[in-house]
Design a protein around this nucleic acid. Structure first.
Length: 279
DNA sequence: AGTGTATCCTGCAGGC
DNA sequence: TGCCTGCAGGATACAC
């Protein structure tokens, strides 16, 4: 469940250590995490040097000197570990790709292997980045922008938030938390939100993402930051994963319902059901 | 344009 | 204790 805060935490850890190091060789333990043939990925990667580490949505972007990037979508359980121990309890348990660097090494670890490492040249990267929605934490992303985007869709607002093409970096945890804080029912059609509600959601979304980032992300099962540490935000989740527990605002029981193939968590008192035609 | 379903994959929780 | 089943979900593909 790495979402924006977890990806950004990983990026910050990597940025401090990886740039300037050259990829001497790489070992692909599971080629299903590569978005291309392993031989092609290797040929276009070996010998290159990391120039920078960035983020787009939930994706970690490894920028290579001289152009080109490795776009890492972490999926459910992916993480990037710089210089982890080779042996002992902290050694990566599920390495999928190991980059041998000069100096050190970088391990892409992924228990479930839903993640993908895709090697892109600059033009392909720009095309791909253009398919993603705006970055919710960007200074230029205002409440009015969110309201405009929401007004174009009939989707349930929770599903809307999960759509990377509409807004980048939000997954199920922070979608639910944001809607809880904004007191908006997750099944409300996106375009039914009033300007006031869109403003609350804008505020809540950014506050939740920032707070999670400050806490080093949320560790649910597998997530670890670049130093192998767990995030601290999990204990501060107010709705996600808390069905049956009292709402921290009003004491009603948090409910869980499934739609769009995913669990939604909400307080039935604070987040009233949608009612009537398209409201 | 939207919804629902299946797929990928493994670990873990719950039931018995 | 241990086996079995089901569930978790990010992205994508596909049918309707």
């Amino acid at each position: 469940m790495p979402e924006l805060p977890e990806a950004e935490t990983i990026v910050r850890g990597l940025r401090a250590t990886i740039p300037g190091r050259r990829i001497v060789d790489l070992t692909v333990h599971h080629d299903d995490v590569l978005g291309s043939e392993a031989s092609d990925f290797r040929r276009r990667t070996k010998g290159r040097t990391f120039a920078d580490v960035r983020r787009r949505g939930k994706n970690v972007i490894l920028v290579l000197e001289g152009g080109g990037r490795i776009v890492v979508n972490l999926g459910m359980t992916g993480t990037l570990l710089p210089d982890p121990p080779f042996e002992g309890p902290d050694a990566p348990s599920h390495p999928a790709v190991v980059f041998e660097l000069d100096p050190g090494h970088l391990v892409y670890q992924d228990v479930r292997r839903f993640g993908r490492l895709r090697r892109m040249e600059e033009d392909a990267y720009e095309r791909w980045a253009g398919t993603l929605g705006p970055e919710p934490l960007d200074d230029g992303f205002g409440a009015g922008d969110l309201a405009d985007l929401l007004s174009a869709s009939r989707s349930p607002v929770r599903s809307w938030l999960l759509d990377q093409g509409r807004i980048a970096g939000v997954g199920n945890i922070y979608a639910n938390e944001s809607l809880f804080r904004a007191r908006i029912h997750p099944a409300r059609p996106a375009r039914s939100l009033t300007p006031d509600e869109a403003g609350r959601l804008h505020r809540a979304l950014r506050a939740v993402l920032r707070a999670a980032l400050d806490a080093g992300g949320t560790t649910f099962r597998d997530y670890r930051n670049a130093s192998g540490e767990e995030g601290e935000f999990g204990r501060r989740l107010e709705a996600y994963g808390r069905d049956g527990e009292p709402c921290p605002r009003c004491g009603s029981r948090i409910r869980r319902v499934v739609f769009g193939n995913r669990s939604a968590f909400f307080c039935p008192e604070c987040q009233p059901e949608p009612h009537g035609p398209d409201v």
